[in-house]
């Protein structure tokens, strides 16, 4: 009796999660996949098994370019965010006394408390020709005329990095504080320099935290619409922006779905490549 009861416990615990995943991931994904195989003829949606929407990726240069732009921006943001977040997480974990660490983390995530859209517009004002950055550089005599910072890829990357450094700091910090100080002590005892200790001991052991944060950064960044729309000034278009254009006037859901599936395929590929180090359970 008790064995049978226990046998039922497993499915009992898992079923709600399965229902949730099925309802909010599998079903929408199937709908989107099916929609991507439909076509829009005139203004009429024609269901079918056509690959025409995927073929447009090779026929229309701006679609392929959007994928490249999205990848370039996302990779830049991910690399820059990791480079900035690691030292920050290190300082919080090892240089700040434990009693101040909670405050330091709070300060690190403080920008999360403001609206994403408001934060993006704030960056637009900071980077404007009359904005803080240009005015500071001019007053310091470093430039004589304002330089174009807003409405550029630089602005998009800056807005993203500001957001994702916080996220990465948390995942890397979580990894660093779980690392026993004995590893570093042992390495030093064996004659390793500080750099060698970091290079051969700490970095490999914190790789799961870095990869986990980097993967989340990649996923959130490549699918984001708001930041490039506000800060990029449409000087180049990412995939989410092109999806929005397809939906806005023509309601071309089939092509928009195909583009969304392509984004998902890219994310899946990145997941496979990074799966070895991913530790999503540590979040």
């Amino acid at each position: 009796m008790s064995t049978g009861h226990q046998r039922l416990k497993g499915p009992g615990f898992v079923t709600p999660a399965l229902i949730w995943t099925f309802a909010f991931f599998v079903v929408p994904f199937l709908v989107m996949g099916t929609m991507s195989l439909a076509t829009l003829e005139g203004r009429t949606l024609v269901w079918g098994l056509s690959l025409a929407n995927y073929a447009e990726l090779t026929e229309k240069a701006y679609l392929w370019r959007a994928i490249m732009v999205s990848l370039e921006i996302t990779l830049t943001v991910t690399v820059v965010s990791v480079i900035l977040a690691y030292p920050l997480a290190w300082i919080i974990a090892y240089r700040i006394p434990p009693r101040w660490q909670r405050l330091a983390l709070l300060l690190a995530i403080l920008p999360f408390w403001t609206s994403y859209v408001v934060r993006s517009y704030a960056w637009l004002l900071v980077l404007a020709r009359e904005g803080v950055v240009n005015q500071t550089l001019i007053s310091m005599g470093l430039i004589s005329e304002p330089i174009t910072l807003a409405n550029t890829r630089f602005a998009t990357v800056t807005g993203f990095v500001h957001f994702f450094v916080m996220l990465l700091t948390l995942t890397i910090y979580a990894n660093l504080v779980q690392l026993s100080p004995n590893y570093r002590r042992a390495a030093m005892d064996l004659g390793a320099s500080a750099f060698q200790t970091f290079r051969h001991v700490v970095l490999p052991l914190t790789l799961p935290g870095i990869v986990t944060g980097a993967f989340l950064t990649f996923v959130l960044c490549i699918g984001d619409y708001v930041t490039p729309q506000i800060l990029g000034g449409n000087t180049e278009l990412t995939v989410p922006q092109v999806i929005m254009v397809q939906l806005g006037r023509r309601a071309d859901f089939p092509l928009a779905s195909a583009l969304a599936i392509v984004l998902m395929a890219i994310v899946t590929l990145v997941y496979i490549l990074s799966a070895r180090w991913l530790r999503l359970d540590r979040l």
Partner: peptide, 18 residues
């Protein structure tokens, strides 16, 4: 062009001197 902007972004760009 420095940007291709929606309503709010275009207003902001003009108002801030961008």
């Amino acid at each position: 062009a420095a940007s291709v902007a929606g309503v709010v972004a275009a207003q902001t760009a003009l108002a801030t001197g961008e």
